[in-house]
Amino acid sequence: MSDDNNPIVVPNPWSKLRQYTTARIALGRAGTSLPTKPHLEFQLAHARARNAVHHELDVKRLEASLVALGHQPLVLHSAAENRPMYLQRPDKGRRLEAASREALTKVARPAEGYDVVFVIGDGLSSFAIEENATAFLDVMLPPLVQQGWRIAPLVVVREARVAVGDEVGELLGASMVVVLIGERPGLSSPDSMGIYMTLKPRVGLTDESRNCISNVRREGLNYGVAVHKLLYLMTEARKRGHSGVQLKDEAETLSSTLTAPSKSFLIESQ
């Protein structure tokens, strides 16, 4: 039988550490296994994340919010017709459908060409884009305009993979593409946005050519830090003439990581 000294569900004496992370720590144990309560909480989180994957991007609302920022986006579609095809055929999600390619060729462009095009793709979490894309661009675009970047009209692509940005950039003749895309939803973060920057975009490039900033969302890497990092990467890529692995992210003291103490309670002097 259980008593206070030998409970069936043993709590973990480090539960106060839960305030420092959203990781599922100090769940306690039944024997050495997961107790019923956290076990079923996990099942619920998984069910919700599954729902997030299949949620369709609310394009009308996204469009309206971008227009409110002063940008009329071009709404395109990848070659993946629907979500089931999108999930099984990444090659289709990396290319535009014919009508979308056609639409892009009709976009007017300045004689010197565009310096950068921002592409917004639903990816694996439309929820991430609905939550973060407009709010991020609201902070990102003003400094770029101020620095004189020639920014192409915003492009929204449905059923998009990261590489679809290469085709958009190439067709627009832009020197650089920045793709904002919904990352695959985690149990605790169904709304995480990734940002991929590629210099001289063209069809056929691989991840080697890109620089990535991930986990952009209110509870993750906040917009201010993400903007700072992206500005740095964009400026350096243009200066050095390449992006990707060769371009190391040397940006100092940008993330909240580095404004937080670099030591933890485990190695403070005792």
Binding site: Y20, T21, E219, S256, P261, S264
Partner: peptide
């Protein structure tokens, strides 16, 4: 940890 926070 999503932001590499040392305490987290």
């Amino acid at each position: 940890h999503p932001t590499d926070d040392p305490t987290g």
